[in-house]
């Protein structure tokens, strides 16, 4: 059994490596700041371009219980940005090692592969977190957001559980991507469909019922509901308990699947001899 100290060293090393490497790729910051704000603008203009604000608010009240459509769209982008960050940071963590050519080297060590990915994923949340937070603040000022919080605990717990669910999802993707041997294309391909079915820029109730089933199979959807409701609709911890429990369940489910997937990936790659390839 690997000791807790060993796990901690691995976790810290994964973060150390990423901090050092990401410092050398700072120009990415420009894209991370600009693109979410532009996406928010696109979705807001899509609505206000065809209907009056009053009509849009009325429509949103009917579908979501809250008229705050700019808030809905800004937070939609915020949570979706966390999803994409996780997709590329945690999800691509192992694939990136293949790209660097260091994958065999880390697998030569006795360190836990799961902890390595968790290190990358947690750092991904922190590192992209402040950028995403900044874009949310910018967008809130630009598009005039009004928050309605009655239970701050719901906000904190909601965000925390959303992050955990996404970290778990990242863990699962990390094994799956390497196993698929087509990580890049798949990582790109999952983004837009998830944007569509999770209700990033419109209420899910607008979707046909069969697609709503897909929506509720995704943690992003629940994360969006919880965060929007606690920040804009005065949602409480108790009132959101079902969604919060769903997020916990997703976290556990994807964690187990992730651990299994990473093991499977290592086993398959080692018998086919594809660890060193890219």
């Amino acid at each position: 059994m690997t000791s807790l100290a060993a796990q901690w060293r691995t976790f810290r090393a994964a973060i150390f490596k990423n901090v050092r490497i990401s410092l050398t790729y700072r120009p990415w910051l420009i894209n991370s700041l600009v693109s979410p704000v532009v996406w928010i603008a696109i979705s807001i203009f899509t609505y206000v371009g065809i209907a009056s604000p009053a009509a849009i608010e009325e429509g949103f009240r009917e579908l979501t219980g809250s008229p705050a459509f700019t808030g809905f769209l800004v937070l939609g982008q915020t949570i979706y940005s966390f999803f994409t960050a996780m997709n590329w940071r945690g999800g691509m963590a192992l694939e990136r090692e293949r790209f660097y050519g260091t994958f065999e080297m880390i697998l030569l060590s006795p360190a836990s592969r799961v902890v390595m990915v968790l290190g990358e994923a947690v750092w991904g949340i922190i590192d992209s977190g402040w950028v995403i937070f900044l874009t949310t603040v910018i967008a809130s000022i630009l598009f005039g957001l009004s928050f309605n919080v009655t239970d701050p605990l719901a906000v904190v717990v909601g965000l925390a559980l959303t992050f955990l669910a996404m970290i778990s999802l990242g863990l699962f993707f990390s094994g799956f991507y390497v196993l698929s041997r087509s990580a890049g294309p798949i990582a790109h391909a999952v983004q837009s469909p998830i944007r569509f079915v999770s209700g990033v820029s419109f209420p899910i109730s607008a979707l046909p019922v069969y697609l709503q089933f897909v929506s509720y199979a995704l943690p992003v959807t629940f994360g969006l509901n919880v965060v929007r409701s606690s920040l804009l609709g005065g949602g409480t911890t108790l009132g959101l308990s079902q969604e919060l429990i769903a997020l916990v369940a997703f976290t556990i489910l994807f964690f187990i699947l992730g651990v299994w997937m990473i093991r499977k990936m290592e086993q398959v790659a080692k018998s086919r001899g594809t660890l060193h390839t890219f």
């Binding site: 690997t2 060993a6 090393a13 150390f16 006795p110 360190a111």
Partner: peptide
């Protein structure tokens, strides 16, 4: 340093 940490 990184690898030394993976070896605990």
């Amino acid at each position: 340093w990184y690898f030394s940490q993976l070896y605990n």
